[in-house]
Amino acid sequence: MARYLLRCTALVYLLLLLVLPVGLIGWRTFEHGLRPFVDSLTTPEALHAFRVTIVVALWAVAANTVFGVGAAILLVRHRFPGKRLLGALIDLPLAVSPVVVGLALILLYGRFAPLGGFLERLGVQVIFATPGMVLATVFVSLPLVVRAVAPVLEEMGDEQEQAARTLGASSWQTFRRITIPGIRAALGYGVVLCLARALGEYGAVAVVSGRLVGQTQTLTLFVEERFQNFSEGDAFAAATALALVAVVTLLLTKLLSPKGGT
């Protein structure tokens, strides 16, 4: 008896909060067929938004992957004082509001800010330009690769690496031929999570980009801007595209999950 009550409560809650809303977006988008969907997404602004989003995301993922693997190795295979502190600092971005991220970056890299002014004089504009958006995206997705790789690195143990070294392999060879293959699945998992986060970032990028349509507008910013300008069709189309990316991401993470999926 209690079992049915619990099941119903859970399913109804999930239906109202999760399933219906997401289903509705798909419905609204394709209500009038595939044509309007494609049209919305092939306007110059939309295409530009796609481009900006992908460029920013790829840079951010590349940077965080390198950092992620390096930091994971540092935390797991090396000993030094303050290791726990480093771990906590790496997790810090998870607790920071996206708009605060934006503000923080403006305060350092804005035109009148210490580092920003210096870079401006060198001809590099950070805020209201792509570099700033990359920084913001790096910030919010920073911990993801580290957190995916570190536990697997820990579980793997360093015996294989030690064995490789006794057989004469250099550090780099050991890394490339033993460590990387060992963490392959977890790395893939972390990269997918990082990419999803990067593609979907809104708040931090909204602050830092200046939301200049056709210049610094990512797909998420496109969704909001189109909606505020009463082009609901365009907004829903882009939202659906992003939702589809999210679903694909979910599937990939299930496949790559270190626990082999539920």
Binding site: P21, L199, G200, V223, A235, A246
Partner: peptide, 11 residues
């Protein structure tokens, strides 16, 4: 996995 703005639109 879903971008927050999409969640907002959806709701």
């Amino acid at each position: 996995a879903l971008p927050t703005i999409v969640a907002g639109l959806v709701l």
